[in-house]
């Protein structure tokens, strides 16, 4: 365990923990949109910045990446920190002016509205969908296309993603709900592609995409009859 000061409070945190995690454990709230405990550190949204002082040097770091250190002084709400957060949320509101999670962060920061003209893109490029697909699901069906302001999340060559197993992880993990997924008549539609769902042998309910079940069987070397029934009937 290491001891550090956060907003004037002495707190303890396990070695290797990020400042964000240490703050959350100490009930200090830091807004963020791209960090996820299941994923590797990324540090892209920059909402979670904090000001640290270490050996007389003060600087702004991303708390979702920076690790705790003995004697570190952290200020999670300094003027510089709040300025960065206000700018970031205003910039993101220009991409997506309506999503409640962004509006909530803006409200907490005292931002009533973005001074920047909205150019609605929806996606805030937190990258959670892409990283979940790669790091958790393990298929990398989607990725980034372009760079800078033209960067966006896309399927390869803008076509039906050949590696997608329709698991929907990207849809569920998106903090601003811009990856649509629909189910109708035994078919799941995601990334503009139809994926048939598996019908439960016993109850007849559609319970998971056929491709996802195939992927699991392949991954774990399971017999073909595995997943013929839904979780209730199994």
């Amino acid at each position: 365990m290491v001891t550090l000061t956060m907003d004037g409070r002495k707190i303890e945190a396990p070695e290797g923990a990020t400042l964000l995690k240490a703050a959350n454990s100490a009930n200090i709230e830091i807004p963020q949109l791209c960090s996820n405990e299941e994923l590797e550190h990324y540090g892209a949204c920059r909402l979670c910045v904090v000001e640290i002082t270490h050996k007389n040097r003060t600087r702004i770091v991303a708390s979702c990446i920076y690790e705790v250190a003995e004697g570190l002084e952290v200020n999670t709400r300094s003027e510089r920190v709040l300025n960065v957060r206000k700018l970031v949320i205003e910039l993101l509101l220009a991409r997506n002016p309506r999503h409640p999670s962004l509006l909530k962060i803006a409200e907490d920061l005292g931002v009533k509205k973005s001074r920047f003209e909205a150019e609605i893109k929806g996606c805030i490029l937190c990258g959670q969908c892409i990283r979940t697909c790669r790091e958790v699901v393990g298929v990398s069906a989607i990725g980034y296309e372009g760079r800078g302001i033209n960067k966006r999340v896309a399927t390869p060559f803008e076509e039906s993603p050949p590696d997608c197993i329709a698991c929907g992880s990207c849809h569920f993990v998106c903090p601003v709900d811009v990856i649509p997924m629909k189910e109708k008549d035994g078919v799941r539609n995601i990334w503009k592609t139809d994926f048939p769902l598996q019908k439960c042998e016993s109850c007849g309910r559609y319970f998971a995409p056929v491709k996802q079940l195939e992927y699991f069987r392949e991954q774990y070397n399971l017999p073909p009859e595995q997943f013929s029934k839904c979780t209730h009937c199994r």
Partner: peptide, 10 residues
């Protein structure tokens, strides 16, 4: 800009 972080990209 590579477009990864918000302040630079936007």
């Amino acid at each position: 800009s590579c477009g990864k972080c918000t302040p630079c990209r936007e």
